[in-house]
Design a protein around this nucleic acid. Structure first.
Lengths: 165, 165
DNA sequence: CTATTTTGATATGGTCCATAACAATTATCA
DNA sequence: TGATAATTGTTATGGACCATATCAAAATAG
C-alpha cells in the first residue's frame, strides 16, 4: 500500500522561486500490468487485514483454514503445495494455528511420518466468522467499487493469468 | 475429532492400493479476490524477470529507471515516495543502480542535503532496451492471453482498486 | 541566532521466501 | 528378505523486502 506516499512530495525544484509543486509523472508506469497488479494487491491485502482484525487472521492463514475445512485429513505436504507454500515454511505457520487451537495435527496410522490436518471446533467457528467478515466487508466493498459483473470478470481474468500465463 | 480422524483415514490414499489421487478442492478460495490477485501478481513478476533476464532488472528497478527518465533531477525522497518505497530502503536500491552506472546522484547546489537523480547514458540505453523487451515479450504475451480490450479493462480496474479502494 | 524541519544515510528487526540437510519412516526392487 | 531410494515433517540458514528509530549535515522558521 502507498504508505506515507502523499506527504513528502514538495520542497526541491526551484529553491524558493515560486512553489510550483510540479507533480511527478508516472509515464508508462501506469499502464504496466505488473505495477498496477502489485499496487492493487497491496491495497486488497491491507483491506483484508483490516476486515479480519477482530479474528487476527492473515490472508495466508485464512486460506489454510479454508483448505482444511474443505479437505480434512490431508497432510502438510499436500496443503502447503496447493497453496504454493514450501514445506519448511509451512511448519511455523501450522505451529501458529495449532497453538491457537484452530487446527490439529493427527498422527497417521497408515503412515507414521505424516500428519492428518483437521480443523478443531474452534477453528471451524473462527472460519465461519471469518467467512462472514470477508463476504460482508471485504468482497462486498469490491462489489461496490466495480459492480458485480466487473468484479467477476476481474477475478476470471486474474485466474486465467495465474493458471495459463 | 475422532470422527474427523476416521474421515481422514478414509480420505487418505495409500497411493497404490487404489490409485485415486483425489485432488484437493480449492472451494471458495478460487473466488477470493486476494487469492487470485496474489497468484496473478506472482506469475506476472516471474514472467517479467524472465523477459528482463538479459538486462538483469527487477520490476522495482525498472520502475525507478522509468521515473528517472520522465522526471530527471528529482531527489531521492520524491522518487521513493511516489513508488511507495521508504527512504531508508531506497538508499541501497540506488546504490545498486549507481554502481552499475545506470543512474547518478548529483549534489544539488540549491540544497546541499539532496541529490538530483539522473539517468546516465548507459542508463538511458538500458532503459530503452528494457522498454522494448517489456513491450515485445511481457505485455505482448498478456495481450495474446486476454486480448487488447480485456487487457485494458483489467489494468483500468486494477488502477481503480489501487487508487480508490 | 536558536530551534525546528528536511534529506540522505545507518542500524536494526520483522516477515516472507528459498535451499540444504537430517531423522524417522516407508517404498522399491534385486 | 534386505539394501537402497524416496518421502514426511522438521531445523537451520540466508536472502529479499519492509518498517521504525536515529543520526549528521544542511536548510528553514521564528
Amino acid at each position: 500500500m502507498t504508505r506515507a506516499a502523499n506527504e513528502a512530495a514538495k520542497a526541491q525544484r526551484p529553491a524558493r522561486k515560486e512553489a510550483e509543486d510540479v507533480p511527478i509523472e508516472l509515464g508508462e508506469l501506469s499502464e504496466l500490468i505488473g505495477y498496477t497488479l502489485k499496487r492493487a494487491q497491496l491495497k486488497i491485502f491491507e483491506d483484508f487485514l483490516r476486515c479480519m482484525a477482530p479474528l487476527q487472521l492473515t490472508p495466508a492463514q485464512f486460506s489454510v483454514l479454508l483448505l482444511l475445512d474443505r479437505n480434512p485429513g490431508r497432510n502438510q505436504t499436500e496443503i502447503a503445495s496447493t497453496l504454493g507454500i514450501l514445506r519448511p515454511n509451512f511448519v511455523a505457520m501450522l505451529d501458529g494455528l495449532e497453538s491457537r487451537d484452530l487446527c490439529a495435527r493427527i498422527r497417521s496410522v497408515n503412515d507414521r511420518r505424516s500428519h492428518h490436518l483437521v480443523l478443531t471446533d474452534k477453528g471451524k467457528a473462527v472460519l465461519a466468522r471469518a467467512k462472514k467478515l470477508v463476504a460482508a466487508k471485504h468482497e462486498a466493498r469490491l462489489n461496490d467499487l466495480l459492480g458485480a459483473d466487473n468484479r467477476a470478470a476481474l477475478v476470471a481474468m486474474l485466474a486465467k493469468i495465474a493458471d495459463e500465463f
